[in-house]
Design a protein around this nucleic acid. Structure first.
Length: 302
DNA sequence: AGGTTACCCTGACTGC
DNA sequence: TGCAGTCAGGGTAACC
């Protein structure tokens, strides 16, 4: 049975003048959030927000109304990412924490006010006539405020595990967080309390590259395999960031170049297709773990 | 305490 | 062709 093609999720950064330059569709895991954050930082650092409109009272949870009074008139001093959260720092020592959920998008326009979509839940503009829209049709995104100097004590951030791209993230780190975890390694990698930022796609891909069966119990991962897994997690995330995330389509322009998404993914969403590992003639299988699709090759993963 | 499931939402897809 | 039902996703609360 061929797996169904999942809905395309997006966490775009659109930058345009009178018209958008393009629509970049990406899957908002760590690499995509990192790229959205960098794109926002490049365009918005130093800007002063002069207007904020909350067009909906809640996403996943209520949007704090204080956003308007706390951030209006304040200058953006910097951007950070923690796991899949974008953190925007303001001149009044307040940080805006934003999670894109599954379908969240940050859209930046310049010039006159852009057309407002029914899923544009927050609209801001700056003193340099830049417009920022938070668009999220599934409303699984979330946002909150926190004092900047207490940001990592915020309830959304305080329990998140180590960043896999930090230099300090080693096989020893991974062994430590997996120790005693009587859950499949795939589920452990998705657990943000254990490792930050890894989502379904990159968990599948990193395990495939490592030759580790997703159902393997986390606590039983050997030192050697932990080392390999750490290397592959870093590799797949770094490659994805370098490729600008998993861009797969341009809605505005015909682009015959295949996107990173199709080229780079070796197992994700490839059920029934040939394994792409060198010398392997296995067929990619799909199983459901904890309600999430897992793709793997039973031939080269054990 | 730690593992597991349900829930939130809606566009895209599947099957009739 | 059109409609109804199903599925995907992340994070958390509630359950076991």
């Amino acid at each position: 049975m061929k797996s169904r093609v999942p809905t395309i999720r997006s966490a775009d950064l659109i930058v345009g003048g009178e018209c958008c330059l393009g629509l970049l569709i990406i899957m908002p895991e760590l690499p995509e959030v990192e790229n959205v954050m960098r794109g926002l930082a490049q365009r918005l650092t130093g800007q002063r927000l002069v207007g904020i409109e909350l067009r909906r009272s809640a996403l996943r949870w209520p949007i704090p109304k204080e956003i308007v009074e706390q951030l209006t008139g304040k200058r953006i001093t910097g951007f950070r990412r923690r796991a899949k959260y974008i953190i925007i720092n303001f001149s009044n020592n307040i940080s805006w924490i934003i999670h894109l959920g599954i379908s969240g998008r940050m859209l930046v326009f310049n010039g006159s006010k852009p057309l407002i979509d029914i899923h544009d839940h927050v609209v801001c503009y700056t003193d340099s006539s830049l417009w920022i829209k938070f668009n999220d049709y599934r409303r699984f995104g979330m946002m909150d405020l926190s004092p900047t100097n207490e940001i990592y004590q915020h309830k959304l951030l305080k329990n998140i595990g180590p960043e896999p791209l930090d230099k300090g993230f080693s096989s020893r780190t991974l062994e430590s967080v997996l120790s005693g975890k009587h859950v499949p390694i795939k589920a452990a990698l998705l657990n943000q309390k254990l490792v930050a930022g890894i989502g379904n796609i990159y968990a599948c891909e990193a395990l495939h590259r490592s030759g580790i069966l997703p159902s393997h119990f986390a606590m039983n991962i050997t030192k050697k395999r932990a080392k390999k897994l750490v290397f592959e997690i870093k590799s797949v995330l770094t490659e994805a960031i370098a490729a600008g995330g998993t861009s797969i389509r341009d809605h505005r322009q015909v682009n015959n170049e295949p996107g990173f998404f199709q080229n780079a993914l070796r197992v994700y969403n490839r059920e029934g297709e040939r394994c792409l590992s060198d010398g392997c003639y296995g067929t990619v299988k799909r199983v459901v773990q904890y309600g999430r699709s897992t793709f793997y090759c039973p031939q080269c993963q054990s």
